[in-house]
Computed example of a mutant assay.
Amino acid sequence: MRDAARLAMRTGAASCIVAAVLVGLKLWAVAETGALSIAASLADSAIDLMVSLGAMTAIIYAQRPADEDHAFGHSSAEDIAALAQAVFIAVSALVIAAAAVMRLLADAPPPLADERQGIAVMTISILMTLALVWWQGHVARRTGNRVIAADRLHYLGDLVPNIGAIVALVAAGPLGLPQIDSVVALAAAVMMLIGAAGIGRGAFDALMDRQADPEVLEGIATLAAAWPGVRGFHDLKSRTAGSRIFINLHLELDGDLSLREAHDIGAGLKRTILLAYPQTDVIIHKDVAEESR
């Protein structure tokens, strides 16, 4: 788990650095071109920077060990951060959509300038975002960290508006169609809203103690059913908090087993579950099987 925590923190730092660089580049590009599609991408990157900083703080806080006030640790901080991300993304999307509609309804949309410089900046932005998204996906799969998964989702969503901004700049220059800029910005806003809904739903479900992924539960059930000495099991319950999954499981054992033998069976199964699902926190109870009573 320590390796996973370090990996998550490094990924959070990488997100902050990439977002800061992109904000600087896009500020310059907006000043040079006046393109609303780049402004939409700039707003998205600015929010990326803000939420990535918040996510980094949440990741660090979530690694704090359990204490008297938080017996199950602090991993729910990841869900709170993810929910905040969803709100910020949704608000920015609405602002961008409103600006795009106003430009579309205007009698004469403002002309764009220096399209080549804008295209160069957006190309750099796409390449940096692709590299970051690939790395975040790798880390999210290894650690199950919900904040990194949410961070990856909205960086992935950045790719389409970035590509759209290039299309808008090309259309506004050689093709003389400045309205495309507003259309691309509006489409980007819609994508941001859809992404925010997905992030928010996942975080809300975790905060409401929704059960773990059915595939995880099925895998744990398969391990328990096949474990030597286990006559059966019941009350397999779970809840999620950030990247952690809390599991409660009742094993049915032979009533004639010694306490040490029963303990060894439970401890062995627990170690196997943790190896298969490192993001879990497992509590196993031992009950006497019906035929042993």
Rank of each mutant, 00 (worst) to 15 (best):
D256C: 12
H250S: 13
D3L: 12
M9R: 11
A82C: 14
A120W: 14
Y155D: 06
A165H: 03
R141N: 05
S45D: 03
A13S: 13
G200T: 05
M1E: 09
N162G: 10
P109C: 11
S258H: 12
F72A: 15
S92C: 10
S52R: 02
I38Q: 07
V184E: 13
D209C: 12
R141T: 01
L105W: 12
M122K: 04
A140R: 00
V139H: 01
V216M: 09
V51L: 02
L186G: 07
V18T: 04
G176Q: 04
L132Y: 06
I265S: 08
E32Q: 13
M56K: 01
I60R: 08
T11G: 05
E32V: 14
S76H: 02
Q179R: 13
R239W: 08
V18H: 03
A187T: 14
A40D: 07
I17F: 05
D235T: 04
H138L: 01
G12E: 03
E290Y: 10
D158H: 02
A113P: 01
A19C: 03
S41Y: 02
A100H: 06
K26I: 07
L156E: 03
S292L: 12
Y155G: 07
A99Y: 06
M56R: 02
A206W: 04
A221P: 05
L104Y: 14
A241Q: 10
D256E: 13
V183G: 06
I59H: 07
R2S: 15
E215P: 05
R146E: 10
G198Y: 03
A5Y: 04
I80L: 15
S52P: 00
T143P: 08
D254V: 10
A46K: 06
A212F: 02
L132D: 09
D69I: 07
G118R: 01
A150L: 04
A71I: 07
V170D: 13
T272V: 10
G157C: 14
